[in-house]
Design a protein around this nucleic acid. Structure first.
Lengths: 215, 215
DNA sequence: GCGGTAAGCTGACGGCATGACAGGACAAGT
DNA sequence: ACTTGTCCTGTCATGCCGTCAGCTTACCGC
């Protein structure tokens, strides 16, 4: 079901080939986190991997194609984010804990995949459907369970029924995503990073429950 | 004070030169909104402007340099965003209006400068100080007055004093920025664009006042 | 007008990345 | 050792980058 790895010209890649391919992906990942996306060249990636540009083109159509592979890998990892919501309680004090853990977990995931998410975000914003879908996968892994949780609360009369659950969940996840992307920005507003969680978590709590967080 | 426009090699640009320069900037702007940033080539911009690549290099060190010029122009325009906050009231019903107009105005500005803001956002995320500063200028043009408004409310006892005003304002503006950047994402969550304002505006109101918006 | 000067533009060029191919190296089975 | 299929690279045509010398155009004082 995973489908064998194939070269651009259709051959199936063997053990050695897959190693080379992976090495190229690793080097590209490294490259993305140290140079601007626009300046990442095939030749540099190949050189770093101790191979030649021709080899790169055997496994990937171009830089973008290779980035997509890395991004898809990351999208698979993002299922772990569901755990930040599933089975968690939003009632009273434990609701505060849930929102704090959500903020922490999400920011951590984003930080871990910083460089690749930057490119995915750009691609999505530029209208590339493949990048857009990957971004959706990542965000949905949190947004979907969150929307479900909100609907649950609404059904139990513990949240504002007038709000569209999906819209609220989407906005909140967007908020987290954007905060994650620009953590550095906050410091220039005179906001220390440690102030970020105490600010975001109550907003999440507010958005979900429509109530002020308990002290 | 504005400093004359100069070519890369130090000549001062005259009327014709400024026209050419402007035409190149316009074409670049157009180009950015139709092709991926990574694929925007000097030769294409020059061709579209009916001139030669060499001319481009007379006015700009490279594509990035030209983008910076466009971005700085836009940053200047962003002062108009202050009007969305200055002199507005957050008390009762008028607070709802204020937050709605803030959301509308901000989304409109972002949409208008979509393409260039995408690149600015990328540059900032990649750690480029110049792009970062420009992004700050835009966001601060709203975030600063908003933080002031929150401090005002706090002083009058109409808002939660435990919240850091700057942090709250920063988070809210981040929320707006990210929603603006990824409006398409919301539709894939089954959220219609017109649902966006009714969702964001109450969150802004909540963030600023700490109270549920009046119906 | 006239010539001088600075602005403005471009053709041409070396350098480098791209992307394709064919041929050689290598591993594994016979 | 031979065969077979995988894997890598040298090489090449193409196209963009970024620079320069040199030509054209506009402006200004006379």
């Amino acid at each position: 079901m995973t489908g064998q790895v194939r070269t651009v010209d259709g051959r199936v890649a063997g053990r050695r080939g897959q190693e080379t391919r992976q090495k190229l992906l690793d080097c590209l990942r490294e490259m993305l986190s140290t140079s601007p996306y626009r300046d990442v060249k095939v030749i540099d990636v190949a050189r770093m991997a101790g191979t030649s540009p021709a080899t790169f083109y055997q496994y990937f159509p171009d830089v973008e194609g290779a980035v997509l592979d890395i991004a898809e890998e990351m999208a698979k990892d993002s299922v772990e984010l569901k755990e930040l919501i599933d089975g968690k309680s939003w009632a009273g004090k434990s609701g505060t804990t849930t929102s704090e853990e959500l903020v922490d977990g999400f920011l951590a995931f984003w930080r871990k995949n910083d460089a690749i998410l930057r490119v995915v975000t750009l691609g999505a914003a530029e209208g590339d459907k493949r990048f857009f879908k990957i971004r959706m996968t990542v965000l949905n892994s949190v947004a979907k369970p969150l929307a479900d949780a909100i609907k649950d609360l609404q059904a139990k009369g513990q949240a504002d029924k007038a709000q569209d659950a999906a819209a609220v969940a989407g906005s909140l996840i967007s908020l987290l995503a954007s905060a994650a992307e620009h953590q550095k920005a906050f410091t220039s507003w005179g906001v220390k990073v440690k102030d970020l969680k105490p600010t975001l978590a109550p907003m999440v709590y507010l958005g979900v429950t429509g109530k002020k967080p308990p002290r």
